[in-house]
């Protein structure tokens, strides 16, 4: 494993126990930083707006990303379309801190994800299950997040993906050596990474929750289910009081195991994002099914 990959995995380690917030301009970025975000995700339209507006969704304007980089001192991430390695090259030229190869944008390639091992900047990728996570890691992702269902404010898919990942990790851990190759074949995952999970009982990289987290309780729920930190996309800046909600979610992630603190921070946050129930979304409009 290369030195660079180790350094990139280690940046993700530093983000743990933290909240990564979607922001659309420098002002929101500063609000997020002041609220205690451990990083921001710069994008032109947050997932809820992408859903509402439709059309093709692409990587953000470099000008907007540079303005956000100039506005804050915490790491700045940005999204590229699945398989769009040139958008990734552009973000690398901007010295972005993390690239999210994201199903939130319209996929650029229906077959291949980006060969992330060719890049010096780190990548985070979404996954619905263990096999998908291990495929992305083998391609060079140094951080994983659940896909959830972005832009909905409905946490059900993030929960489903996290639980599935945990169950599959427990299953792989229970296997004997001679069962591992068959397991690797069945889940379409690289053998050496299946073996790693068998030996260590966990993913080889940090795993965050994403996709539908809208309240401090949602964030704490994902932490109690075993994720290392959370992404909040539309949940903050689509709510009635973004600053207060952002601060509350940060505190909830730190004290995810303390219901008294969670009760305090959940109080009087104003309106949450309106949200859409995932079950009301047609199968072909589900972002989590983009990528494989």
């Amino acid at each position: 494993m290369s030195k660079r990959y180790e350094l990139n995995k280690n940046l993700a380690e530093m983000l743990k126990g933290g909240v990564i917030m979607d922001v659309m301009n420098p002002e929101q970025a500063r609000i997020a930083e002041a609220a205690g975000a451990c990083a921001v995700m710069a994008l032109e339209r947050i997932p809820a707006d992408i859903r509402a507006k439709g059309g093709v969704s692409r990587a953000s304007d470099p000008k907007m990303i540079k303005e956000i980089q100039a506005a804050v001192s915490i790491p700045v991430m940005a999204k590229v379309r699945i398989g769009h390695f040139v958008e990734a090259q552009i973000l690398e030229a901007l010295e972005i801190d993390y690239i999210d190869e994201s199903e939130v944008l319209t996929p650029a390639d229906n077959v291949y994800h980006i060969d992330k091992s060719k890049f010096k900047v780190p990548f985070v990728c979404g996954a619905k299950n263990l096999g998908e996570a291990l495929r992305r890691i083998r391609e060079g992702a140094s951080m994983i997040r659940t896909k959830g269902e972005p832009g909905t404010g409905d946490v059900v898919e993030a929960v489903t993906h996290m639980r599935r990942m945990n169950e599959e990790i427990r299953y792989i851990k229970s296997l004997t050596d001679e069962q591992l190759m068959t397991a690797a074949k069945d889940m379409g995952a690289p053998y050496e990474l299946v073996k790693y999970v068998n030996e260590h009982g966990k993913l080889p990289v940090v795993n965050f929750a994403a996709g539908g987290i809208a309240t401090p309780a949602d964030a704490a729920l994902m932490m109690q289910l075993g994720c290392d930190g959370v992404f909040v996309g539309s949940g903050i800046f689509k709510s009635g009081n973004p600053k207060k909600r952002a601060e509350a979610i940060v505190k909830a992630v730190t004290h995810y195991n303390d219901p008294k603190v969670l009760a305090e921070v959940s109080e009087d946050l104003g309106e949450a994002m309106v949200g859409i129930s995932v079950s009301d979304i047609n199968a072909n409009n589900r972002m989590a099914d983009r990528g494989w």
Partner: peptide, 14 residues
Amino acid sequence: GGESTAMGKLLVDF
């Protein structure tokens, strides 16, 4: 290690 802005804020908040 982590983000000093996040930890610094939480030291104050708590």
